[in-house]
Design a protein around this nucleic acid. Sequence first.
DNA 1: CTTGACGTTGCCGCCACGGCAACCTCTACC
DNA 2: GGTAGAGGTTGCCGTGGCGGCAACGTCAAG
Lengths: 252, 252
Amino acid sequence: MRWTIVEVARLSGVTSRTLRHYDAIGLLPPAGVGANGYREYGRDELLRLQQVLVLRELGLPLGQIREVLDAQRDRVAALREHHGRLVAERDRLAAVAVTVARTIADLEHEGESTTMPIDRPENLFEGFDHSRYAEEARRRWPEEAASSERHASALSDEETEARQREWTAQMVRMAGLRAAGASPVDERVQAEVRAVYDWIISMWTPDAAAVKGLGGMYVDDARFAATFDRVSPGLGAFYRDAMAVFADAHLG
Amino acid sequence: MRWTIVEVARLSGVTSRTLRHYDAIGLLPPAGVGANGYREYGRDELLRLQQVLVLRELGLPLGQIREVLDAQRDRVAALREHHGRLVAERDRLAAVAVTVARTIADLEHEGESTTMPIDRPENLFEGFDHSRYAEEARRRWPEEAASSERHASALSDEETEARQREWTAQMVRMAGLRAAGASPVDERVQAEVRAVYDWIISMWTPDAAAVKGLGGMYVDDARFAATFDRVSPGLGAFYRDAMAVFADAHLG
DNA sequence: CTTGACGTTGCCGCCACGGCAACCTCTACC
DNA sequence: GGTAGAGGTTGCCGTGGCGGCAACGTCAAG
């Protein structure tokens, strides 16, 4: 069985342009080329394309996908490396998003003093030394994290670290607001408190009974049950059992 | 006072190559050009550069930075738009990171059956139709969200939606494990339950008294107090007061 | 025979620069 | 005044993953 480029495109969902690109960079050469110059793809190429798309979906650059598929590289190692990059980029974007949100709020509430006078030009760029802050945070927090009795066992290291960083940044912002003379009822202060509240919630630890009770509700409550059933009949009961196991193992 | 390109570079932290680039694309033309062809920058250019760097730090593309600074565009509107993109991209990366992590785990624990037999090639690409899934989720969830008593008032719409998406994906994965014959004590199932547990935690709602109590602890507990004091003396008490206000306003 | 769908190669563009080449200019020192 | 070294200039190529377009050949159906 042979397929033309557009047939493969329709099967896989990528464009024919992309398939030609993959040929051009040697990532997925066709099985052969007909007398008319048309590319011909076979079963093996479809399988390879599937693997390419899986890895591409995971965000791996095409060059690394080729290395992995040509077995010159360990898949797990490549993915682990990639995972680190993803998490770092995710955190960076999260931090930027927070800053942008705060900037928007500031701009909306700006009264008058947008332009502050500047005498020494080198002060213009004071805020841009990020590495210093990041190091500070890293130096300050590890011991605190170790000595605290926070119930972190259910969270991965990455998540824990991300929360710590959030928390530190939170305090710094709060200190800034206070220094600027804001009172506790100030809406910007309250916005920060709301963030603290979210954070508290995420640290709140329901006990074993509560988790089991929730699992039971997944079965007994018609609304919940219907939601699960739409995904897969009987899934609610499966959740209930699995949650009971988890509760016994981790929350005893 | 006039500065050469390298002096500006040293003041601001960007490279001279970047400054030339900004000139080339019309983002930051120098104040003038000397008889020797050297670019000369003045105070106004430093101020403009500072604004450029602020907006660039927020991730705004250079073209939009130019539009904003040339006042053809509303800053807040541009940032709001940008914020949406950031959050979407952050969520996408977070989702991909989770998938990559699970893939790594799968690859590490894979026993033997890596290559499953495939007869119908179109099935190879079944998992890739994301738009359909996304629509499904969007159609399914709004009512559920509206009718549920979940305490979502303290969360933004974006966060709520992200949680819902996580939750739906969770169920699909769980259904897949179950279909594959996994039992509730299976470690992959338990890993998913752990995710549910985290989700439950984040939905758990402490009442006003609990929030106030926690605020009080920020002052009474020496460990907490010390942490706050290192950031700013008396910050703990400030938190306590602000949290009491929040609790009264939102958790009464 | 025509039409329209599909195939090919090849080149430009995106975005924010980095790197290099080839060359000119300024300052300091011998 | 020669020279070294730091710094200035323009201009072109490369990055990643294709999309879009041009200009043209091929195939099946009516």
